[in-house]
Design a protein around this nucleic acid. Structure first.
Lengths: 194, 194
DNA sequence: CGTCTATTTGAATGTACTCAAAAGCGGTGG
DNA sequence: CCACCGCTTTTGAGTACATTCAAATAGACG
């Protein structure tokens, strides 16, 4: 059950037996059905989630419109850092798009680890750094590229998104309306036929 | 000279005398004239910069067009994490918009600190977390808000940007063309007059 | 003072948007 | 297993807003 998350950690730092045990002890496995919420806006996000299987999207509401801004598949870490760090209620929702098995642990347990085993500060640092890289990439995508190019890149770089995620969520992720994505797809198809 | 950066560090963790000395020892103070580059694309970003005074912008080139995506003022940290972490050449340019005094230190020195004094892993973690928060915010801004709203928010949340930064850089930061920003400003002025 | 760059203004264009409706698809219950 | 219902995707027509291209004005700096 905890093989994947341990592997993920161990690709970052090596843990001695004490550290590994201490870490495993704070883990909790959870199952979510399709459409269930792993995190709901208004909650304080005091946990870190690692996805064993399934997939989920993150979105928040702006004037009643759902704004999807990330998809998570197996082997990926998630937390709403803003809420996690500041203790403020989150505006993010994390919703299972397929049945999910996740491993999660609480902030307070993690902070205890930070204080007991400094190696975990390093884990935290590297996870934060990776989170930063991933948001930066998203940012560049949103600022540099036309919607059509964004979709083409998504197809080549994250095919699982295009294959497993409903189109209107992808549209939201790309920053366009479902109708526009539909037209873009049509354009791409026509271009290919030639 | 190092007062500000030490204060910034100490707002994160407390350092004992050894740690503080070790840290100060890796610091280097540098001056940059207006328009000079603190970081140039193609270089490997192997340093972290802390701005003592002045301001700078970060931009990269897309098809020959400069894409400005952040402004830095005094008391702010900067590094191109992508390049810093992966060792790949950076695509980012950091250019002084006013004369700048900065304090910087090298990656290799920092990693030595990481290994000698675990407290710096924590510093690194928290800086990475903050960098993440700031990129996330930028992201939300870019995805949620109309250009006009973005500019209004910028005026109220970061007035120093509007006051000290040339307009065409702000336009680029907002993701629009200088002409559009000019028209937006006009619209805002007209609205205020009523 | 003069040059170079930044900003403003104008007119025409393009692309995604809105609104509306039709077609397609998946899941549920009979 | 099929029929139906609801949700997703597609298509169409018209609109809005930033963009492009071009030119004029304003401002900064030597």
């Amino acid at each position: 059950m905890t093989t994947q998350i341990l592997q993920s950690i161990k690709s970052i730092v090596s843990l001695n037996q004490n550290e590994e045990e201490a870490f495993v002890n704070i883990l909790e496995v959870k199952q979510f059905k399709k459409k269930e919420f792993l995190l709901l806006e208004g909650q304080i996000c005091d946990k870190i989630i690692f996805i064993n299987s399934g997939c989920a999207r993150i979105f928040y509401n702006v004037d009643g419109v759902e704004n999807t801004f990330q998809f998570f598949f197996a082997e990926r870490w998630y937390t709403d850092f803003s809420s996690f760090l500041t203790g403020q209620p989150t505006i993010e929702n994390m919703q299972a798009l397929e049945p999910c098995e996740v491993i999660q642990f609480k902030k307070k347990d993690l902070y205890q680890l930070y204080d007991t085993y400094p190696v975990f500060d390093r884990v935290g640092r590297i996870l934060a750094e990776n989170a930063f890289l991933s948001v930066s990439k998203l940012n560049q995508m949103l600022t540099n590229e036309e919607p059509e190019q964004r979709y083409l890149n998504l197809m080549s770089q994250r095919p699982e998104v295009v294959q497993r995620i409903p189109q209107h969520y992808i549209a939201s992720y790309l920053g366009i309306k479902p109708e526009s994505l539909s037209r873009i797809r049509k354009r791409i198809l026509l271009a290919k036929e030639r």
